[in-house]
Amino acid sequence: MPEDAIPRHTQVFAAAGTAFLRVATTAGGMGILLFRILARFFPPRIDGGEIWKNLYKMGVKSLPIVAITALFTGAIMVVQAATIVKRYSAEGLLGWGAGFGTLREIAPLLTALMISGRVGANNTAELGTMVVTEQLDALRVLAIDPIGFLIVPRFVSIVATLFMMTLFADALALFGAAHTGKALLNVDPVTFYNGFTAGLLDFGDVANGLTKSVVFGVVIGLASCHFGLATTGGAPGVGRAVNAQVVASAAGIFVLDYVTSFILG
């Protein structure tokens, strides 16, 4: 780009336009990919064995990091609520206060960010490496559809993994929160658990968080497959693709979090 040729004051507009075009290209590419993925479901042309393989690789192997994240997150939520609880000496409400934010927002959000970093980035790196080493062309030459064989199983596994991990993280975060409440504020875990079964929280709050996790899963799945497939430029290109994937996933997660929060109310 001959940037010197453009007058200085219009460079800002040029940059903004370029950035906008880039975002639009990415969003469009992800939309087309989603369409192509969905087309493989009618009629189903998906490799079932690959789904199981990926579920193991993505799901089981992410358990430790999700567990650590969830335990600490629950603990942090209680520490944050602690000041307020002390101020109003409302120990009975601690479970509800920490549980509400955890179930509806923080657990799905942080789990999604961690899965985006662990699973999404791995997926992009793997697909990107396959693209730059022509393994995708090798599949096509064997008359095997790369979308049905590679992309759909990964996409399905990412969505399923994030859903299950969020469920798991919900439980562990509340566990961590209950025990931090005991250590820090001397609130008995029973009181804590009563706090969120007393009627202020219901299944709707859990479902709210889980719905979000599905939306986030779709975002991560699409972003990681899109950037993996769009990799160019050899090995450094794979690094760039991974970087672009985590950034796009994070931005997408936050924007859609907002949208789903409002829609679900």
């Binding site: 396959m130 080493t133 090798a138």
Partner: peptide, 13 residues
């Protein structure tokens, strides 16, 4: 028409 790639291009996984 089968094809054998220059770098073999086997699936690493």
């Amino acid at each position: 028409c089968a094809m054998v790639f220059q770098h073999s291009t086997l699936f690493d996984s």
